[in-house]
Amino acid sequence: MFKPRPTALLALGALALAGALTTPAASVATSAEDGTVAPVQKALDDLVKKDKFPAALATLRDTYGQEQFFTAGVGDLKTKSEVPQDGRVRIASNTKMFTATVVLQLVGEGKIKLDTPIEKYLPGLVRGKAGDGRKITVRQILQHTSGLPDYDEIVFVDGLKTLRKYFKPQDMVDYALKKKALFKPGKGWGYSNTNYVLAGLIVEKVTGRSIGDQITSRIIKPLDLRDTYWPDARDKSIQGPHPHGYFAAKPNQPWIDVTTFDPSSGWAAGQLIGTPGDLNRFLVALLNGELLEPAQLAEMKKTVNAPDSGATEGGRYGLGLSTVKLSCGGFAWTHGGDAPGYSTRNAVTKDGRAAAIAVTALATTLEAHKNVEKALDTALCDQ
């Protein structure tokens, strides 16, 4: 559920309910300079017109910190309300970047060691055919090289009904431990939300405070991310201006409004709510060294090949941070996130250009999924 790759998104089939809703025509914005449609606006319009997303929104940030905002579609299919500019959405697996940052801050403080087995911090928790905490390091859970299986398809076996259910972190770990390991620790790469639930538990063990409190006090408040927050326990709503989020199991099926649901199944792997603009500000600050000391930022940027990362060709994964090749040359630092109702893609280039794209539904086709990523590429390469 909270992973930036298409396979899991398209495997949630047979969940749609009755009640026909139609996707409206996209809005058209023009460039202030010559009256032509900006490439990023056209990309968003196409996501609504051609790929049938209810809405799309984007925030671009140039090397000087100047922002541009774009929207297409409508924020609510029933009322046809406008898409709020830089509206709040569930940023899902982008939460992993925040969790990894907190872990690395604690590494810098000497409270956690990257190459120490997680057994030191969570004694006896990980045992069995899924993996052994005595053989899996902190680095490996942050890098998705632990071999631990994901819990998502077990948690969501009851489909959309599960979105109303509250989960404790231990619940997700228990689900995952019923499965077989993907590979031996360090012998492969496999995206697993379980890794980041364990990372969150380690943070809580060594600090004595919740992962939500740590993310808020160490990242959100210092950076003044006013539109990013950790939802309270059992808070199913999205506070502040936001577009509604929708779900359909297959193309051409009616959209189901899934704006409100319990985000606890994402937890340290995917619980945060934020805006495209705040994602840009966070990533720029992170890569500028405002959150981590040079040694820890260097560790975060050490990547391994990640063929199933969901990024376009050439993707590699570090410690909660990924890379994506750009059509205009070079690469950008990125992550992305998918949860019922929302998909986000965001990245920052070496020279500090940033862009974040959000759509208000999970892609129902692989082509639509790729077009969201292409829109991000357009947003970065057209600046």
Rank of each mutant, 00 (worst) to 15 (best):
H144F: 08
D76P: 04
A20E: 12
I220D: 00
L125S: 05
H369C: 07
G133K: 01
S343F: 02
S192D: 06
L376F: 02
G274Y: 01
H335F: 05
W189T: 00
T137N: 11
L362C: 05
S322Y: 04
K178F: 12
K370N: 14
D76V: 04
I220S: 00
T36Q: 15
A58S: 13
A361N: 04
D174M: 10
L292T: 02
L198H: 00
Q85M: 14
V348G: 04
L77R: 07
K42P: 01
D227E: 07
N193Y: 03
Q214M: 13
D171F: 09
R127V: 15
F2W: 06
H242L: 09
R88N: 11
A92H: 09
S93V: 06
K42N: 11
L201A: 00
K205M: 04
A130W: 00
V103H: 01
A181K: 14
G208R: 05
G310S: 10
E373V: 09
A20I: 08
D46Q: 14
D351E: 12
L182H: 02
I219R: 01
K120N: 11
Q105H: 13
K178L: 15
L319P: 00
I357Q: 00
E299A: 14
G329L: 07
A332H: 01
P243T: 14
Q68K: 14
L114S: 08
G329C: 09
K221G: 08
K52Y: 11
P251D: 06
G159F: 04
K180G: 13
G266R: 01
F247R: 04
Q41W: 01
E109I: 04
R134I: 12
K236H: 13
L321I: 12
L148R: 01
A361Q: 12
G131S: 10
D150V: 07
D174S: 15
A25D: 12
N195V: 04
D34P: 06
A56I: 05
D262P: 02
K250Y: 11
P54T: 13
L148A: 10
L297A: 10
D377I: 01
G320L: 02
G19N: 11
K165R: 15
E293L: 14
A72H: 01
Y342S: 02
K113P: 06
V28D: 08
L287T: 06
P276Q: 12
A368K: 03
Q271G: 06
N288H: 12
D115W: 10
R234C: 03
Q296H: 10
N193E: 07
G315H: 03
